[in-house]
Simulated assay, not measured.
Amino acid sequence: MQEFTNETIDLENLPKYQDVVLTAPNPKYWNVIVINLSIILLLVGGGLATLFYLVDDEKPNPLYLLAGYLLFSALLFTIHRLSFKKRGYALREKDIIYKHGLIAETTTIIPIHRIQHVALDEGITSRSYGLATLQIFTAGGQTGHIHIAGIEVEKAKIIKEALVKRLDLLENLTAEQ
């Protein structure tokens, strides 16, 4: 029987995930974000314009509405741009790190042994730029899943294969014990 210990851990000697150099998304991914945002804003703008012309009540000055819409659009693009610059990921020996967010910065660290499934997603816009989204699903439910967008397809395939190989290795080690 193993002797029970419960020693205090010196927090200063723990490895610091903040020191890990993260890989940023491919700069071409910004084009994908711009295209997707533009499509959404055009659809919303078209819907608002249709609604504006269908309403028979007293209408506000359309220049004010247009100025508000353009200001909202500029704010949306600025927030997405700043958020884009904060994204990053790193594949380490025992885990994968993903950091994102502008106002609420989130850093997710998933141990390799918690990964259940790895998928590669290429959206229509991303595919035209040779980019993909790496989806990593864990046993911990929705909160543990991460989607790392803006990775070159070939690099995403390499990461996926590396994760799958590590999962197979861990599964084989567990089966032997």
Rank of each mutant, 00 (worst) to 15 (best):
K28Y: 11
L48Q: 03
P25Y: 01
L163F: 01
L11H: 12
K160D: 00
K16N: 15
T133L: 03
G47V: 04
K165G: 05
Q142G: 04
M1A: 12
L82D: 05
G123R: 11
D19P: 02
Q135Y: 00
L54F: 11
I136G: 03
F137S: 03
F77K: 07
L163E: 05
L54P: 01
R87E: 13
N31E: 07
Q2Y: 06
K85Y: 02
S128W: 05
G45Q: 01
E12W: 04
P15T: 04
I146A: 02
V164E: 08
N31P: 02
I35C: 03
L173K: 14
E93I: 09
L71V: 12
E152Q: 06
L70A: 14
L66Y: 08
A156R: 02
T78D: 08
T23I: 11
I96A: 06
Y89D: 08
V34N: 02
T50Y: 14
N172L: 12
L169Y: 11
F84E: 09
N31Y: 15
D10G: 01
I115R: 00
H100D: 12
F84R: 08
E58I: 14
G88C: 08
R87I: 08
T143H: 10
L170Q: 07
A49E: 01
A139F: 00
E3H: 09
V34A: 11
A49R: 05
H117T: 13
E3V: 11
G141P: 05
L169P: 00
N13P: 01
Y89V: 08
I124S: 09
I136K: 00
V153T: 14
L75G: 14
G144C: 03
K85S: 09
G88Y: 04
N61P: 08
Q18Y: 04
P25A: 07
N26T: 02
I115E: 03
L91E: 07
R114S: 01
L170K: 03
I109F: 09
K86L: 09
M1Y: 00
T125F: 15
K59V: 06
N172P: 06
Q177K: 12
V34G: 00
I96H: 08
T50K: 10
A175L: 12
E93Q: 15
V20L: 04
K99I: 09
R87D: 08
I115H: 05
K99N: 11
H145D: 10
L51S: 13
F84M: 09
E176F: 10
V153Y: 08
H147A: 15
E105K: 15
G140L: 04
L14N: 03
N61G: 06
A104V: 12
I124A: 10
D168T: 13
I148K: 00
A24Q: 14
Q142F: 10
R92S: 03
L14C: 06
A74S: 07
L173V: 08
N13D: 10
A90T: 01
E161I: 01
G123L: 09
L41T: 01
I109V: 15
T78R: 10
L71A: 15
D121H: 13
G101Q: 05
I136E: 03
L102V: 08
